[in-house]
Nucleic acid binder design. Sequence first.
DNA 1: AATATCCTCAACCAAATGGTTGAACATAGA
DNA 2: TCTATGTTCAACCATTTGGTTGAGGATATT
Lengths: 109, 109
Amino acid sequence: MVEHRLDDVFQALGHPTRRAMLTDLAARERTVGQLAEPFAISFAAASKHVKVLERAGLLERTVIGRTHVCHLAPEPIEEAYRWLGRYERFWQERLDALEAELRREHDAS
Amino acid sequence: MVEHRLDDVFQALGHPTRRAMLTDLAARERTVGQLAEPFAISFAAASKHVKVLERAGLLERTVIGRTHVCHLAPEPIEEAYRWLGRYERFWQERLDALEAELRREHDAS
DNA sequence: AATATCCTCAACCAAATGGTTGAACATAGA
DNA sequence: TCTATGTTCAACCATTTGGTTGAGGATATT
């Protein structure tokens, strides 16, 4: 079931440290150490975050010698994006309606 | 900070029951009881899920007498969608590059 | 007024999460 | 071979999460 992975993906995205790591990885490949560096947490804690991202399929790891090089993986975020996209249309309609209403109220005043 | 809300939004999306509730709400307004009905959990548990969605701003509640009518709220999912959109572009480029490379390899063989 | 309905709250529980520290492992460099 | 480096693992801790049950509040219904 595809739905199962969405649990992991959205949950992984639900922590600012992990989102920052993804942002970092969007620019270039990063070792676990490099990913950990910006944060005031222990190396082991950062390593756990990396593992969460990996379990969600958002990140893939290539072990080169003693360093682990990480890069983004495309599929799961695509899934999440498409899931949200189903609602995006709905919400866009609502936003348009809201905007129109506010405009009406403003014009009436 | 906008980032703070994204924590709540993604975390709220990270549970299948809550995503199913949102799917339900996309079709029409629902009372808490109606939202709870499809799930084999206690009413109180469902009520907690609703509260999580509400805290994330994904759902708004209108109390009418003793019933609480819920509807989707547009803004936070828009935020999440846009956040993912930044990476969607990135990943799409990667996918395109990958596809192009595969095509090249195929043509060369 | 009595009762049924819709929902929240409080207390509790087990499991997951996010953090720590210390040890261990594998590899690179002296 | 010895040591330094990059990373994981294990044990532990506090907090959060997702569930339960039982009680209670507010509103409809009779």
